[in-house]
Design a protein around this nucleic acid. Sequence first.
DNA 1: TAGATTGTTAATCGATTAACAATC
DNA 2: TAGATTGTTAATCGATTAACAATC
Lengths: 215, 215
Amino acid sequence: METKEISQAVIGRLPRYLRYLGDLKDEGVERISSQELSERMQVTASQIRQDFNNFGGFGQQGYGYNVEYLYSEISKILGLDHKHHFIIIGAGNLGRALGNYLNFERRGFIFEGMFDKSPDLVGMDVRGIKVMPIEELEQFLKANQIDIVVLTIPKTSAVDIVNILVENGIRAIWNFAHVDLDVPDGIVVENVHLSDSLMKLSYNINRKMYEAGQE
Amino acid sequence: METKEISQAVIGRLPRYLRYLGDLKDEGVERISSQELSERMQVTASQIRQDFNNFGGFGQQGYGYNVEYLYSEISKILGLDHKHHFIIIGAGNLGRALGNYLNFERRGFIFEGMFDKSPDLVGMDVRGIKVMPIEELEQFLKANQIDIVVLTIPKTSAVDIVNILVENGIRAIWNFAHVDLDVPDGIVVENVHLSDSLMKLSYNINRKMYEAGQE
DNA sequence: TAGATTGTTAATCGATTAACAATC
DNA sequence: TAGATTGTTAATCGATTAACAATC
């Protein structure tokens, strides 16, 4: 059976649509046209219609899109209609910050465990979860159904940890380690490279200053 | 004078090149061809050559690229050859995590101050910096030369804060608030929307599971 | 010099935008 | 029904890849 592959460019825009639709819901707006939405979001109406039509018709000619319905459909596409259980490996500042972040819970991402190799951090409490020693990771993975592993560890440890994860059937990694993970096909990795982002900002600062100088 | 605009797609790849070149330097590799680099990085050699040639010729026919030289050129393009002074607004978990992250310092990003509106957080010490009350922000901006403001605040506060920043001549914002900032032309915003990233991961988990089911 | 590999032009591919027929 | 607005095809634009002449 043929399944049309949807480009990551489209997927990358869905969370932003969802955010605007959530705002519209909060404002009590019932329906919206691609034209109105395009003005709010600063993208073309054409792109909005194309994007939505990747998933079938969510709108109605002459009417537009029902906000509530569209919101719920995009939620489903993004898999937000069911729960994801995650653990965090690396109980440093960033790991603890993510563990404490309550908004993930509201989206159905459930914080189930936290691991670190440092004895100084083991036993620490993060939102009701006690940091466990990394030696217990494998056993924990076998005993619990974990959907997502969040990696907030230095890149030097990342390779070893990833091997353990792969051996234990983990299918999805949210990677904050500053390294490209080498995983088998079928395992999903989403990278958040903060320093890359900061460098992009730095580039654009330079560019703007240069442009300003040219005027 | 005509300056060719370089696409953000290219800029987005530069930090990754820099990372691989840094690794090569550490390994003591002196020169590398686009072909060899392409195998390591899993991109086409053609793309590598095109990317570098946006900035003029860094290589030499028959030889390849000098690792040290290329590394230093890309550093310069990204503006990493001079210092950037930054402050963090929002001393919650994420803000403190970023303040404590030492790697930014190594790249020339200097942590100069931290602000929060909550009295519980004011006075707290983050890597030698005392959290200041948000009321002192404006005065601080006038007294210090700040290049980048890192926003780790809830979206409800973001709009007000951004106004203060704009009025005080801030040119660059690294935005972790889950909202699109509305800033005048000439001000650079780099967004890190963590929940968007997590939703993308969630989508891809679903997709893989579906594909696996199809086989 | 001959071989290697870049710099750069041309071809292809994919994503975005425009246009409009279908239809609510 | 007439007007509005989608769904979808066609046109355009930009980014990636291929090819090869230039040159170290």
